[in-house]
Simulated assay, not measured.
Amino acid sequence: MPLSIVGHRGAMTHKPENSLESYALAEQVGVDEIELDVRLSKDEELFLLHDATLDRTAGDDSARGLGPAAELTLAQLQAARLDSGRGVVTLAEMYAATRTFIQLEIKDPATVPHLASYFSTHPDDAGRTILTGFDPDALRHAAELMPTIGRCIIVTSIAVAERFEGGWRALLDHTRSTRFACGLEGLTPEIVDSVHELGLELHVWPMRTTDDMRRAVELGADGTTSDDPELARTWYEQVSAEQTARA
């Protein structure tokens, strides 16, 4: 199967991350999936933001120095001007504006029961979603509340996964993952084969150079996430052509 190209927070090299414009550009260039980040406001509304505060993505002073986003109401989050020219995007807005499969990263474990409630009334959105994250217990909770939605544990390297009691296999079992997202460092074809033997997909990151793509293809990875998904697609086509020429 071809390697899946996932747009990181949309197409964030060219448009403000986690904005409707970024998601639209990612779909325009033909991503297989969009990766984005979900958080919970003070009044328990689901919205999209990578960081714990608005500061890094602020468009002007209205979004700076407000403190943790989790301590702000949705109205406050939407009144603040981000680099997209508007406030945060809600989860429902994102799903209404997109058609692509979604990687939804859980940034705050508190979102899990609220996601379960949302998806119980939005089955079409649930059907094009996989839940991801770095927190094993949050993903385990997601598995318990939303067993029909796929899950993907993310680790920076296989060495980090091995620190989980019982190793990386135990981590996948604990989180009931249907996919494994792992940093390229330390990965081997043997590990990738072992993940596949468990019936799971393996996605790799980061994807910043042609050499990263070459390694992903050589490892037999199923997908990768890129800030510039159109460029990543070009790299993939280049590497695939190289393989064909050698065959």
Score class of each variant (00 low, 15 high):
Y23M: 11
S22F: 04
G10R: 09
V38L: 04
A92N: 10
M94I: 02
G85P: 00
A69I: 10
P2K: 05
R39Q: 14
I154W: 06
G87Y: 00
T129Y: 08
T100K: 13
L36D: 03
R81V: 12
T129C: 04
P229K: 08
V239N: 04
I106V: 15
H203S: 05
P206L: 04
C152N: 14
T225P: 06
A245L: 04
G59R: 07
V112F: 09
E93M: 08
N18W: 06
P68F: 05
T129H: 04
D61E: 09
L91A: 09
R86L: 03
D32C: 03
A63I: 03
D61A: 14
T225Y: 10
G30Y: 01
R246D: 10
R176N: 01
E230F: 10
A247K: 13
E27S: 08
R169A: 13
T90K: 13
R39I: 06
D55A: 12
P206R: 07
V29H: 09
A26K: 02
L219W: 04
H196Y: 02
Q243H: 11
A170R: 00
A24V: 02
G59M: 07
S19V: 02
D55I: 15
V31K: 10
T224W: 05
S117W: 09
D222M: 11
A52G: 09
R214Y: 01
C182N: 12
I191E: 00
A138H: 04
E45H: 15
E165I: 03
L3I: 12
L202A: 02
A52Y: 05
V155E: 14
T57Q: 07
T210R: 13
D137S: 15
D135Y: 15
S177Y: 11
R140Q: 11
R86E: 15
L74S: 06
E21V: 09
I106R: 06
A247R: 11
T98H: 10
E185M: 08
V160N: 04
L115H: 10
P16W: 02
A221G: 08
M146F: 12
G65R: 02
I34G: 00
L54V: 12
E185N: 11
A221P: 06
D137Y: 15
E190C: 03
V89S: 06
Q238K: 05
E190K: 15
V112G: 13
A26Q: 06
Q76K: 06
G220I: 09
Q78R: 12
A58R: 11
T148G: 00
F164S: 03
F119T: 13
D193S: 11
V239L: 06
R9S: 09
R163I: 09
M213L: 03
D222Q: 13
E105Q: 05
L40M: 13
V38R: 00
K15G: 01
D228C: 10
E242H: 00
L198P: 07
P123D: 00
Q28F: 13
E230T: 01
G199Y: 00
S194K: 11
D55S: 05
M12R: 13
R176M: 02
G30D: 05
T244L: 09
I191W: 08
H8L: 06
V38Y: 06
E144C: 10
D108K: 11
S157A: 08
S62D: 03
W168T: 05
Q238E: 15
R140C: 07
Y23W: 10
E237A: 12
A92C: 07
D222A: 08
P2W: 03
A181Q: 09
